[in-house]
Amino acid sequence: MIEAVMLWNEPNNKSHWDFQIDPDWSQFADMVIGAADAIAEVNPTLPKVLGGISPIDPVFMTNMKNRGVLDHLDAVAVHGFPLDWNHWQINDWPDKLKEIQAVTDLPVWVSEVGISTFGAEEVQVFGLERTVELLRGRVPRAHWYSLFDLPRAWPATTRHREAEGSSYYRHFYMGLVREDGTEKPAYQHFRKAAPDFGLCQWFHFQDHRLDEGVQRMKDLGVTYLRTGLSWADSYRDGALDWFDRQMEALADFNVTVTFCFTPEHRGIEPHHTSPPQVKEEFAQFCADMVRRYGPVASAVRSNAAAE
């Protein structure tokens, strides 16, 4: 079910990692190295990718390189939203990739790129088509963010939420499909991007959109997907049942699964962005998930069922 694992999400963004607690990212580096090594013990051939960075920052990537993190990984990743949040233009994509390629020899993935319809839905059509022109053939993986709009009743994972003004509300308009289930104009245009482009779609705990998401991705010709399994969610009642259902539903896709989010009671501070109290616990979660859903584990279960 899994073609690659991604370790954390946007670690240089305070909405996902608290660098007031860990100002030099030394705790993050140690956590990722431990997790990568634990995964390698379970499945030494499964590609391991550094969580996509946002903003695209070669200084941060150099820090990870100097701390030895990249020696334990097979690829790095970046996120870019030039028409919504970044301070650069969409045509700068090739140069932004070169900034990271200049400091590492590892393949550079684009694990999230997207355009909101906050201002106008036609902007998303332009942004999709131009992004495909700029990234197709330049990176081994490009994941469009996202399939669905974020429901307005759900909070977006950001630092200050509504206090961010329009920047916050753009999070709710990143999908190709509106909250009411109707398709935006860019939906049909995405057919021309697949299968070269995959999708990034986060499925929340017991997400009611899972089955529709699978159907729509197949309709669009999507072959690869990035999603997540939350370490924090693993402590919920029925967590493994939900993880099993999610991963089984996605079995027809090449899935990059992101492991992230600190359980509040296991963080140095009670927040999902906090470094963990015990970094080995994150490594154990990653290893357990790879053992359960990785390619080797899937083959073992299939053989056992056949017998």
Rank of each mutant, 00 (worst) to 15 (best):
142 A>E: 03
178 R>W: 09
16 H>V: 08
211 D>F: 14
266 R>S: 14
290 V>D: 02
54 S>P: 01
275 P>F: 05
250 L>H: 06
212 E>G: 13
112 E>P: 04
185 P>Y: 02
184 K>L: 00
49 V>P: 01
2 I>F: 04
26 S>D: 15
261 F>Y: 14
101 Q>T: 02
253 F>P: 04
97 L>D: 02
34 G>R: 00
193 A>L: 01
256 T>W: 05
282 F>E: 13
197 F>R: 03
56 I>E: 01
15 S>T: 10
141 R>A: 00
300 V>K: 13
22 D>F: 09
143 H>A: 11
292 R>M: 03
39 I>A: 13
271 H>V: 02
307 E>N: 14
165 G>M: 05
18 D>R: 03
61 M>Y: 08
54 S>Q: 12
39 I>N: 03
218 K>L: 10
199 L>Q: 02
146 S>K: 10
204 H>V: 06
231 W>K: 01
217 M>S: 10
196 D>M: 04
151 P>K: 13
292 R>E: 03
214 V>G: 08
271 H>T: 11
117 T>E: 14
221 G>L: 05
299 A>S: 14
276 P>A: 01
8 W>C: 13
58 P>Y: 12
236 R>V: 00
281 E>F: 00
114 G>T: 06
64 M>S: 09
248 E>C: 07
115 I>K: 04
45 T>M: 13
256 T>S: 09
161 R>Q: 12
253 F>V: 09
107 P>T: 01
204 H>R: 14
197 F>D: 02
227 T>M: 07
69 V>W: 04
158 T>E: 07
26 S>A: 14
164 E>W: 02
60 F>K: 03
152 R>K: 09
156 A>W: 00
222 V>T: 09
55 P>W: 11
168 Y>I: 09
264 E>K: 15
267 G>Q: 06
249 A>H: 06
54 S>H: 14
174 M>D: 09
260 C>Y: 13
100 I>F: 02
290 V>F: 02
11 P>L: 10
132 V>R: 00
156 A>T: 00
141 R>G: 00
8 W>S: 12
227 T>L: 06
139 V>T: 14
288 D>A: 11
4 A>I: 02
271 H>F: 07
293 Y>I: 11
252 D>R: 01
47 P>Q: 05
184 K>M: 02
162 E>T: 11
210 L>M: 05
169 Y>I: 03
126 F>Y: 14
151 P>C: 05
265 H>C: 15
196 D>Y: 08
150 L>R: 10
227 T>Y: 10
252 D>S: 11
115 I>R: 06
304 A>R: 12
31 M>L: 15
140 P>I: 10
251 A>R: 15
245 R>C: 06
271 H>E: 13
55 P>A: 07
14 K>M: 15
46 L>N: 10
231 W>I: 13
110 V>H: 01
148 F>E: 00
125 V>M: 07
26 S>E: 15
26 S>G: 11
